[in-house]
Design a protein around this nucleic acid. Structure first.
Lengths: 135, 135
DNA sequence: TTTCACTTTAGAACAATTATAAACTATAAG
DNA sequence: CTTATAGTTTATAATTGTTCTAAAGTGAAA
């Protein structure tokens, strides 16, 4: 993803392309594969990569803004940390608790044959399949 | 579940049936339907119900002991709080984000036709299906 | 009974996240 | 260009959920 596209992506979702947002967006979206992270891990990676420091509060703000704009999704993982995913398409996950690593599963690789109907007055928003791994 | 069964349940899993553990176990397991809770919610409910106060640290200790003994399971819910479930059989969940409420889905009510195989050297421990609800 | 490992407890410590309020900046209007 | 201003960043405080600590208490075996 080129810089011009990063700027477009930000502007089209009502986010001013500030220096910090552009740097974070470049880091997150200029990739071939999807990227899973926590704010803590992202912070460490950015500190290593960038010369100028971005405040932790800004990383929180930015990640939340990107999520609100639909550029990031939040992953269902039990535990105290919040995981984010640059893959915003409907998909599923393997979770390796040994390494705390998430692996994407393409939506087409999971086929569900039977599912209960939603309780009274509610609708199904989405279905997430979570496959826990062991060695 | 009778008091004698509570005592048996605790003793058989190597947990001394202390006053606090018996009270918490009675509160959790003397029910017809499964019960979902966070430590915070359990604490509030116990404060309301019991005359003698149980320390928050003890509630954490006890819930973790019960989980280790297989009397409680931890539910996959994104967010900062940890949810527990008195249903320890393999099953799935609806999650209503409006009310933060979990609803059990019987394992037999979800049939998965196709699933990817585990990555190199790993095995599948279990599969959790999580159905997010909306209004 | 006595003993002792296990348990409870209050409070401190910790980790992740959110709130605050002052300084800064992108950009629209003049 | 300037300027004005609403949006943004920042350091730090505050909050929340959870775990740790160490002292006091207690179940149960001998």
């Amino acid at each position: 993803m080129k810089k011009i596209d990063i700027l477009k992506k930000l502007r089209s979702s009502g986010l001013r392309p500030t220096k910090q947002r552009v740097e974070i967006a470049k880091f997150l979206f200029e990739r071939d594969k999807t990227f899973h992270f926590t704010v803590e891990s992202l912070n460490k990676l950015l500190m290593r990569k960038l010369s100028s420091k971005i405040s932790l509060a800004t990383i929180y703000n930015t990640v939340h803004s990107f999520k609100a704009a639909g550029h990031l999704s939040e992953v269902e993982v039990r535990g105290n940390k919040t995981y984010f995913d640059t893959n915003v398409l409907n998909h599923h996950h393997f979770y390796d608790s040994e390494t705390s690593e998430l692996i994407d599963i393409d939506a087409k690789d999971v086929v569900i044959q039977k599912i209960p109907k939603a309780p009274n007055g509610k609708k199904i928003k989405n279905v997430e399949v979570f496959i826990n791994l062991k060695n």
